[in-house]
Amino acid sequence: MRAPGTPWLRSFHAAAPGAVRLFVFPHAGGNAAFFHPFSARLAPRAEVLVVQYPGRQERFHEPCVEDLHELADAVAAELTEWAEEPYALFGHSMGATLAFEVGSRLHAAGARPRALFVSGRRAPSVPAPGPVRRASDEELIADMKLLGGTDPRMLDSPELLAVILPAVRGDYLATETYRYRGAPPLDCPVTAFIGDEDPRVDAPMARAWATHTTDEFALHTFEGGHFFLVPHIDAVARNVAESISGSISGSISSAPEPLNP
């Protein structure tokens, strides 16, 4: 179901009274439905609200936002009333950068996040490579296949590609033109998750997230590529659930786990 009053948020599962609110930010080309299984694993310990970007699913007819700072401004303005309760943020790939930028804006407005979880993404201060956004459709599809995370049947269907490629290209444009503008470090714990075979981010790039918080930082490495999150969803959800439960008392459990077998 959609969270009341805004097309920007989707809610899939009920939460227990007093649960910490978790805003989830999808990857480039992604949509809210991708995180339905993630929400299921966190309910009812967290109230999971997944951000739905323009240009996909029920917002298909809206133009994509091709500037990450502009998108962060829009999302932060929409989430202000939802950030009155204790909340944390989780983002995968492009969504991790967006979660940080939105968290910075909400914090500046007086709504401090309890925790930030970043998955499959280099720190904002580490520039992203390019220019995939200028690639042909065939090259763009090849890059999507390299990263995984998209049903191969969709990538082999001209009809479905016509639907998803505009959002993918718009998100790639937003990601590759993003430049960190020196937002102050957050004062909440930051936890990073990466795959050990991710072609987009390695451990040093992920460890750079430590410079974006004055609180604790932890890095968890899993076997897999850019979408390690799919096979390791249980472990990631468990870490997030334990961490945000601890955040209620101001104590985040952030000890890194060993590499998954």
Results as ranks from 00 to 15, higher is better:
residue 245 S to D: 14
residue 105 R to M: 10
residue 2 R to W: 05
residue 89 L to E: 09
residue 171 D to H: 13
residue 167 A to N: 13
residue 15 A to E: 04
residue 49 L to C: 09
residue 216 E to S: 15
residue 63 P to K: 11
residue 73 D to E: 15
residue 33 A to G: 11
residue 261 P to C: 04
residue 47 E to F: 13
residue 196 D to N: 14
residue 36 H to A: 10
residue 46 A to D: 07
residue 189 P to C: 09
residue 16 A to R: 11
residue 99 A to V: 02
residue 171 D to V: 14
residue 257 E to M: 10
residue 126 V to G: 08
residue 127 P to R: 05
residue 248 I to Q: 13
residue 113 P to V: 05
residue 251 S to M: 02
residue 99 A to P: 00
residue 236 V to C: 10
residue 84 E to D: 12
residue 91 G to C: 05
residue 108 A to N: 01
residue 33 A to N: 06
residue 27 H to D: 02
residue 210 A to N: 01
residue 16 A to Q: 12
residue 58 E to G: 15
residue 123 A to I: 11
residue 16 A to N: 04
residue 50 V to M: 04
residue 118 V to L: 12
residue 127 P to C: 01
residue 205 M to R: 12
residue 258 P to K: 00
residue 233 I to R: 04
residue 233 I to Y: 01
residue 156 D to T: 07
residue 211 T to E: 15
residue 60 F to G: 00
residue 219 L to F: 14
residue 241 A to S: 15
residue 188 C to Y: 06
residue 27 H to F: 15
residue 238 R to Q: 12
residue 253 S to N: 10
residue 236 V to R: 07
residue 177 T to L: 14
residue 110 G to N: 04
residue 167 A to M: 13
residue 248 I to L: 15
residue 224 G to Y: 03
residue 15 A to I: 12
residue 62 E to A: 14
residue 133 R to E: 13
residue 201 V to L: 10
residue 26 P to I: 04
residue 255 A to Y: 00
residue 115 A to L: 06
residue 88 A to Y: 05
residue 72 A to G: 13
residue 183 A to H: 12
residue 178 Y to K: 04
residue 157 S to K: 06
residue 170 G to V: 00
residue 227 F to M: 11
residue 121 R to Y: 03
residue 53 Y to K: 04
residue 76 A to M: 07
residue 143 D to V: 02
residue 214 T to Y: 04
residue 14 A to P: 02
residue 81 E to T: 11
residue 28 A to Y: 02
residue 134 R to T: 13
residue 247 S to H: 04
residue 239 N to S: 13
residue 67 D to Q: 09
residue 144 M to N: 06
residue 24 V to S: 07
residue 228 F to N: 00
residue 67 D to E: 11
residue 147 L to W: 10
residue 142 A to Q: 06
residue 7 P to E: 06
residue 18 G to V: 06
residue 73 D to R: 14
residue 165 L to M: 11
residue 176 E to P: 11
residue 70 E to Y: 00
residue 231 P to D: 07
residue 253 S to L: 07
residue 82 W to H: 10
residue 62 E to Q: 15
residue 65 V to C: 12
residue 11 S to F: 03
residue 185 P to T: 09
residue 244 I to S: 02
residue 147 L to S: 08
residue 101 E to T: 08
residue 176 E to V: 06
residue 87 Y to R: 04
residue 133 R to W: 08
residue 176 E to Q: 13
